[in-house]
Amino acid sequence: MEHSSVKLPVYAKLAQIILGIIGFFYILYIGKDILIPAALALVIAILLNPVVEFLVRKGLNRILSIALALLLITAISAIVGYFIGSQIAKFSDSLPEFKKNLTTLEGNISQWISETFHISEKKMQAYIADAKKGVDGSAILGKTIGALSGLFVLFILPVYTFLILFYKSLFMEFIAQLFKNGEKDVVAEVLAETKGLVQSYLVGLSVEAVIVAVLNSMVLLIIGVEYAILLGLIGALLNLIPYIGGVVAIALSVLMAVATGEPSDALWVLVGYLLVQFVDNNFLVPRIVASKVKLNAFISILVVLMGGALWGVTGMFLSIPFTAILKVIFDRVEALKPFGLLLGDEQPDKPTITLKPKAKSRAKTK
Score class of each variant (00 low, 15 high):
residue 143 K to A: 08
residue 366 K to D: 14
residue 248 V to E: 00
residue 19 L to M: 13
residue 190 V to I: 15
residue 27 I to S: 02
residue 205 L to I: 00
residue 263 P to S: 11
residue 194 T to G: 10
residue 345 D to Q: 13
residue 326 L to M: 15
residue 279 V to M: 07
residue 294 K to R: 13
residue 204 G to T: 05
residue 259 A to Y: 08
residue 298 F to Q: 11
residue 283 F to W: 12
residue 77 S to P: 00
residue 149 S to F: 15
residue 284 L to G: 04
residue 359 A to Y: 03
residue 193 E to V: 14
residue 298 F to E: 06
residue 252 L to Y: 10
residue 52 V to Q: 06
residue 89 A to T: 14
residue 236 A to P: 02
residue 257 A to H: 11
residue 337 K to V: 12
residue 283 F to A: 10
residue 170 L to E: 13
residue 72 L to W: 05
residue 301 I to L: 15
residue 169 S to W: 02
residue 20 G to Q: 11
residue 284 L to A: 04
residue 278 F to S: 10
residue 82 Y to T: 13
residue 151 L to T: 09
residue 286 P to E: 07
residue 79 I to P: 06
residue 74 T to C: 00
residue 39 A to E: 01
residue 238 L to T: 01
residue 359 A to S: 10
residue 196 G to T: 03
residue 57 R to F: 08
residue 196 G to N: 15
residue 128 I to A: 04
residue 235 G to D: 01
residue 167 Y to H: 13
residue 189 E to L: 08
residue 213 A to N: 02
residue 132 K to S: 07
residue 14 L to Q: 14
residue 21 I to W: 03
residue 148 L to Q: 03
residue 82 Y to H: 10
residue 257 A to M: 08
residue 281 N to G: 14
residue 187 V to M: 05
residue 365 T to Y: 08
residue 260 T to W: 13
residue 47 L to V: 14
residue 80 V to C: 10
residue 132 K to H: 10
residue 69 A to C: 04
residue 361 S to Y: 03
residue 72 L to D: 05
residue 76 I to F: 14
residue 22 I to G: 03
residue 131 A to G: 05
residue 364 K to R: 01
residue 49 N to Y: 07
residue 285 V to K: 13
residue 128 I to F: 11
residue 22 I to F: 15
residue 163 L to P: 03
residue 72 L to H: 11
residue 50 P to I: 01
residue 310 L to M: 13
residue 172 M to S: 13
residue 251 A to L: 14
residue 115 E to D: 15
residue 129 A to T: 08
residue 140 I to M: 08
residue 171 F to A: 10
residue 112 W to K: 13
residue 81 G to D: 04
residue 57 R to L: 06
residue 344 G to L: 09
residue 38 A to D: 02
residue 270 L to P: 04
residue 241 I to H: 01
residue 296 N to L: 02
residue 6 V to Y: 10
residue 173 E to H: 05
residue 346 E to Q: 12
residue 98 F to T: 12
residue 260 T to N: 08
residue 184 K to I: 03
residue 27 I to D: 00
residue 216 N to P: 01
residue 268 W to L: 14
residue 79 I to Y: 11
